[in-house]
C-alpha cells in the first residue's frame, strides 16, 4: 500500500512536469511569444541541462556548500547557546524572569528583519549571514529545550534515584532522553528558520550562496538557474527530513504519544 502511494505520488509529479513542459513550449498555451515564454518559464529539460552544467563545473555545489556552511555554523552557535539558556530558564525561576522579556520581545522579530543591521555591523559576508542565522534560530531551540526540561517526569527522576542513579547518570539517562523529542521539534523549527533567513540575506546582498544564485538566474536572464536553485532547496529539505528528523522522530514518537495520553 505504501509503495503504491509512493508510485501515485511519482506519477503526479511526472504529470506536473509534463504540464510544465507543455506550458513552456506552447508559450503559456499561446498567451505569450515562444521566446518570451522561455524566459518566463524554461521547460524542465532546460532546468535539467542547467543542473548538469553547473554540477559539471562545480558551480552548483560551490554555491550550495557556501549556504550549508553558513547554516551549519550559525545553527551550531544557536544550539550551543540555546540549549544551556533553555535548561537554565527551566531550572531557575530568576533566570527565567530575566530571560523571558527578551524572548518575548525578540523572538517575534523575523530573522530577515535583522539583515540590514547585520550587514551594517558585519559587512557583506559570512559574518552577517551567520549572525542572522543564529538570531533567527536560537529562540525555537531555546524554547523547545526549556519546555522539554520542564516536562521531565519527576516520578522517573525519583525512580532512577531509588534505583541508584546519581546526578551525572540522572542527566544522561533520564533528562537527556526526555529532552530528545523536544529537541527534535526545536531543531526542525530552528533549521527551517535558518534556511529561510540565509536565503533572504543572500538575496539582498550577502554574496555567494543559494539565495545569491536565485537572484543571479533572474538578473542574467537565466531563469532555469533560478528554477534549478528552487528545486535544490526543496530537495535539500527532503534529504534533511528523511535522513535526520524522521528517523529521530520515529524513534521517540511511539512512547511520546502514549505518555501524552
Amino acid at each position: 500500500m505504501r509503495k503504491r502511494d509512493a508510485l501515485v505520488g511519482l506519477a503526479a509529479l511526472a504529470a506536473f512536469a509534463g504540464l510544465w513542459h507543455l506550458a513552456s513550449t506552447t508559450g503559456l498555451f499561446g498567451r505569450v511569444p515562444a521566446a518570451y515564454a522561455e524566459l518566463l518559464l524554461p521547460p524542465p529539460a532546460a532546468v535539467a541541462r542547467a543542473a548538469w552544467e553547473s554540477a559539471r563545473t562545480g558551480e552548483l555545489w560551490g554555491q550550495v556548500s557556501v549556504s550549508l556552511v553558513r547554516v551549519a555554523i550559525g545553527f551550531g552557535i544557536a544550539v550551543a547557546v540555546g540549549i544551556p539558556l533553555g535548561v537554565v530558564s527551566a531550572m531557575s525561576r530568576a533566570a527565567n524572569a530575566v530571560l523571558e522579556p527578551f524572548v518575548r520581545l525578540f523572538s517575534p522579530i523575523p530573522g530577515v528583519a535583522w539583515v540590514p543591521l547585520a550587514i551594517l555591523w558585519f559587512g557583506l559576508g559570512d559574518g552577517a549571514a551567520i549572525f542572522i542565522i543564529t538570531i533567527g534560530s536560537v529562540f525555537p531551540v531555546m524554547l523547545a529545550t526549556a519546555q522539554g526540561a520542564r516536562a521531565v517526569d519527576g516520578r522517573l527522576v525519583e525512580a532512577a534515584r531509588t534505583l541508584g542513579a546519581r546526578t551525572p547518570a540522572l542527566l544522561r539517562r533520564v533528562y537527556l532522553p526526555s529532552l530528545v523529542p523536544f529537541l527534535v521539534t526545536g531543531f526542525r523549527l530552528g533549521l527551517g528558520f535558518a534556511w529561510r533567513v540565509v536565503i533572504a540575506a543572500e538575496m539582498v546582498g550577502v554574496p555567494k550562496g543559494i539565495g545569491y544564485m536565485l537572484n543571479m538566474g533572474r538578473s542574467t536572464g537565466r531563469t532555469e538557474v533560478t528554477l534549478l536553485t528552487m528545486v535544490m532547496l526543496g530537495a535539500l529539505m527532503v534529504v534533511a527530513e528523511e535522513l535526520v528528523f524522521a528517523p529521530l522522530e520515529r524513534h521517540t514518537r511511539a512512547w511520546r504519544a502514549v505518555e501524552a495520553a
Binding site: D153, L156, E158, R161, T162, G164, P177
Partner: peptide, 18 residues
C-alpha cells in the same frame, strides 16, 4: 538518601518509556 537496597515499585509503574 535513596539507595538501591531499598527499591520502590510505584503505583504508576514509572518505567522509562524510552
Amino acid at each position: 538518601g535513596p539507595h538501591s537496597s531499598r527499591a520502590m515499585v510505584f503505583q504508576d509503574h514509572a518505567l522509562f518509556p524510552w
